[in-house]
Nucleic acid binder design. Structure first.
Lengths: 335, 335
DNA sequence: TACATGGACGTGAACGTTCACGTATCGGCC
DNA sequence: GGCCGATACGTGAACGTTCACGTCCATGTA
């Protein structure tokens, strides 16, 4: 309102406009804007004033072109609405910021989009990619060309780096514990899309078989509400369930609700174990026993990996670029 | 490993390298890479193959410089660890993606950083800024120059756009309800940093005075654990509290825990009301009554506002660019 | 034969910076 | 008077694309 000199209409002001207005050359404007030597205090201030007056903002493209800009990494996430992912994203952003990197976030879950859409959107704008890409990590790596992709929870993928989890180890921890509590008819509440973590259910089944335990697998949408509904019908069908392991903590929370509403005591009648250890678990009643992951460590690891790949100290696709992390059993009240 | 032609060391391949390798001109490479007309199928494929072989990735800077690139907006967030912010961020990302915009996320909370640090990091890389910036929104707008800043929860700020909340309205809803439940000694559990929402406590106090109700204000760190600790000591001190309103849902969750551990029934002995309506509330026991905000609507509104400002249909700093949203009382079990 | 048509390609210019120089002016010193 | 060193500025080139032209050649057409 005050000065509409260069409103949203009309071309944006360039360094030359400022130079002309100040009656100096490009280079002097550069010197003024970037606090360089070789310019008088007077000129510096005058140029600065003129610059803000004209609404001049240096073009990040021109700057990037000539200087080679800071690294910017894409973060492809299935669903920021599931508390697991913000916890992870938060640590990625922190680690990246510490290195002076930018993070461009894409959430491909809210539509019915695929990870590939996210990769496609991000690819032209980033120097590297981190994400839960599932089987689409291959194509994503292809789209990124030489630029490294760190893909989580998809060990089979051919991305430059990989972070995955030992689900057999996790399942052993959980099932051993449930068995030690006396559970014999254990339900495994799986995610129906099985998008990234298809391995979880298979591992649980394998371990259960090894232990000689009955494992009833059922599927629900990856949300508390979905899990609640499925467990409710399971209980209504008089299924003999005396222990429950869930695909993730959110689904465990839904299961807890269903058990509670059905009048089943937890852990008394049916111990419940969640997975991944999101902060939410501690707030539930009863507090959720879970296969915990140090989520901040996961984010840090992803960025570390990327750093190695970008700097060349780690070779893309090599053994050292494939990390496997372990879950820990955190005992709280629910089991 | 297969072909290290242009590893991380050595300069990156440019369009000219590809052109030379293919024995064609720049323009032909452009035509091949961008699916343009005026090129034979043979050449297109050959160039493409050579390009991936050389690890050629078009420079986003050069491209942006000549074409004027997609809009990218910065999102400055205090703490992705607090479930409120991912819920908000998620809707911003969705709305932005729908418009073909990029979102660069910065979480300034994990260090002891200020919003200004985030703005400083983002400013060189984005065309606009959305964020919970508190009083630093002024300086942030200054750093951004003509580029619009939409600042949340800081109505006094001089940013181009503003989204704020009517806390008097919210406090009336909550306190009226508590009073109608028979509460007379109500505690207001405030955030100690009061970073963005300093207005919440003041509004609650004012409304309480209007209603002639005793309002005991106490402060805790903005987390479930912090809230739990403070409420626990409050109860241990034998304070006569028969109702509680919390700064946000996360703190309400902590309060719930403390009440439960002190053997106080909720809502029987002490109804509890949270604020903002994050999804977490439904998973608690008892389910949390809250002053709910349509979080997805907040994000959409922010992006809409930005769109108006960028397109020029909305004037920076004008009345139309200052939105005020209302909380709604969602009754669940806790009050 | 002359000339238009169109497909497949090439070339100068432009985008907005910064870098590495070059130049003018002034004061001081021998 | 001549030279030196600062200080304060200006200028060509480069960064890697795309755009708007131009060129060349084969094919058809009158």
């Amino acid at each position: 309102m005050t000065s509409r000199s260069q409103g949203p209409t009309g071309k944006r002001a360039t360094i030359l406009d400022v130079a002309a207005a100040a009656g100096v050359s490009r280079q002097t404007v550069t010197r003024a804007m970037n606090d360089m030597a070789g310019i008088s205090q007077d000129t510096r201030e005058r140029v600065r004033r003129l610059a803000t007056e004209l609404g001049y903002t240096p073009s990040r493209f021109a700057k990037g072109l000539v200087q080679g800009a800071r690294i910017s990494v894409g973060l492809a996430i299935p669903d920021l609405t599931n508390p697991y992912f913000p916890a992870f994203a938060s640590s990625v952003v922190e680690a990246a910021t510490n290195r002076g990197w930018n993070v461009v976030v894409d959430d491909y879950g809210h539509g019915t989009g695929s990870a590939l859409d996210a990769a496609e959107r991000l690819a032209p704008h980033v120097d590297a990619l981190i994400g839960y890409l599932g089987r689409e990590s291959e194509m994503a790596q292809e789209m990124m060309g030489r630029r490294p992709v760190v893909s989580l929870d998809h060990p089979a993928g051919r991305s430059a780096g990989t972070i995955s989890f030992d689900y057999h180890h996790a399942a052993r921890l959980a099932l051993n514990h449930l068995v030690s509590l006396g559970c014999r008819n254990i339900a495994y509440l799986d995610s129906d899309q099985g998008r990234p973590s298809a391995g979880r259910g298979a591992a649980a089944a394998a371990v259960a078989e090894g232990l000689g335990v009955q494992l009833r697998r059922c599927e629900a949408s990856t949300s508390a509400a979905g899990a609640k509904a499925v467990v409710a019908t399971l209980l209504a069908a008089q299924e003999e369930i005396d222990g429950l392991l869930a695909f993730n903590d959110l689904m465990a929370a839904g299961a807890l609700k269903a058990l509670q509403e059905a009048g089943r005591a937890v852990p008394g009648d049916c111990p419940v174990i969640g997975m991944d250890g999101i902060p939410l678990g501690e707030l539930l009643t009863p507090e959720l026993t879970t296969l915990s992951l140090d989520l901040r460590a996961v984010g840090r690891a992803a960025v570390d990996l990327l750093d190695g790949l970008l700097s060349g100290s780690l070779e893309a696709g090599s053994e050292e670029a494939r990390l496997v992390l372990l879950h820990t059993l955190v005992r709280r009240q629910s089991a």
